Amino acid sequence: MSLPPQVRIVEMGPRDGLQNATSGFVPTEVKITLIDRLSATGLTHIEAASFVSPKWVPQMRDGAAVMAGIQRAKGVTYAALTPNLQGLTAALAANVGEVAVFGAASEAFSQKNINCSIAESLARFEPVIEAAHAQGVRVRGYVSTVMGCPYQGDVSPAQVAQVARQLLAMGCYEISLGDTIGVGTPLQAKRMLEAVRQYVPLEQIAVHFHDTYGQAIANLYAVLEEGVAIIDSSVAGLGGCPYAAGASGNVATEDVLYLLQGLDIATGVDLQAMINTGFWISQQMQRQNGSKVALAKGIKHEN
């Protein structure tokens, strides 16, 4: 199959990127400014907040304030993670444009992460999805550990496909396949995608690759060759996984954009504006910029 002519970037930095920040609580004002800056790059989809228990994810405790403070740009969807009805209620009150639920392809990861089986986790999502649909809000489904688990090791493509199939059947409009600990290789990525495509139409599949082993860009190229046209990424490579030792951040949005530009694949996103934003948030968090492209190209002062 040929490469897609256009790819939609789903920016994960404000949520998946910041939720595991180890430098202390990221101020609400910084989160708001980050989202506003990202909105100005040409992105159409930003995951802006997570409405989960502050006991488990204290970094995301200001979700309502963040959603209230951002300048909503026309044509941009501002999404939030909502694992339960309580989170959904809070997200709807904050006027999110879309919500997301997440399940694992690994039984061991599901037990360690949310203390229940895969089947139990999916059953918990049914009322969340139904309630969101009743309010006219779309639901995105995430499948984590699609190419490896820190607790059980290998994860079979067939298991990934079954979880994806169930999320689609429950009403998720799009399924994002996450290599949570970044151990996948291009051949694994193709085999996993081939299994999922038996149940989920290609145009409803997104990929969400972490770069722990430096394979994310190679893995993305492998699935782009198969026609995948939705990519999750995180500005400056922000992120990680608290349940996966050594897991680095998401693949950097800047690096994905550079890859896509080189393949003549349209995104509508301004690479230099993204680079500048990546340096800005890295400075705010006093961390090294995780984008190789950003480090190579450098910041350009904005007028």
Rank of each mutant, 00 (worst) to 15 (best):
S53F: 01
P54R: 09
P54Y: 06
K55H: 05
K55D: 03
W56K: 02
W56C: 00
W56V: 00
V57T: 07
V57S: 04
P58T: 06
P58W: 03
P58S: 06
M60F: 01
M60C: 05
R61D: 11
R61Q: 15
R61A: 15
D62K: 01
D62I: 00
A65F: 00
A65L: 03
A65T: 00
V66W: 03
V66H: 02
V66F: 06
A73E: 09
G75L: 00
Y78N: 03
A79P: 00
A79N: 04
A80L: 09
A80Y: 12
L81I: 12
L85N: 06
L85S: 06
Q86W: 00
G87Y: 06
L88A: 05
L88D: 04
A90P: 01
A91T: 11
A91D: 09
L92T: 07
L92S: 02
A94G: 10
N95G: 04
V96I: 15
G97T: 12
E98M: 14
E98Y: 08
V99M: 13
A100I: 04
A100T: 14
V101H: 10
V101R: 09
G103F: 13
A105S: 15
A105V: 11
S106K: 13
A108C: 03
S110N: 12
S110P: 04
Q111P: 00
Q111V: 12
K112E: 15
N113R: 05
N113E: 07
N115Q: 14
N115P: 01
C116F: 00
C116H: 07
S117H: 05
I118W: 09
I118K: 05
A119D: 15
A119K: 12
E120W: 05
S121L: 03
S121F: 02
L122A: 03
A123C: 01
R124P: 00
F125R: 01
F125E: 02
E126T: 14
E126L: 13
P127E: 14
P127D: 14
P127W: 08
P127T: 13
P127Y: 09
I129C: 04
I129V: 11
I129H: 02
E130R: 07
G136K: 06
G136E: 11
V137F: 09
V139H: 05
V139N: 05
G141D: 10
Y142G: 12
V143I: 13
V143S: 02
V143K: 01
S144F: 07
S144K: 07
V146Y: 03
G148L: 09
C149I: 09
P150C: 10
P150Y: 09
P150R: 07
Y151T: 04
Q152G: 08
Q152F: 00
G153Q: 11
G153L: 13
G153K: 08
D154Y: 13
D154T: 12
V155L: 07
S156E: 13
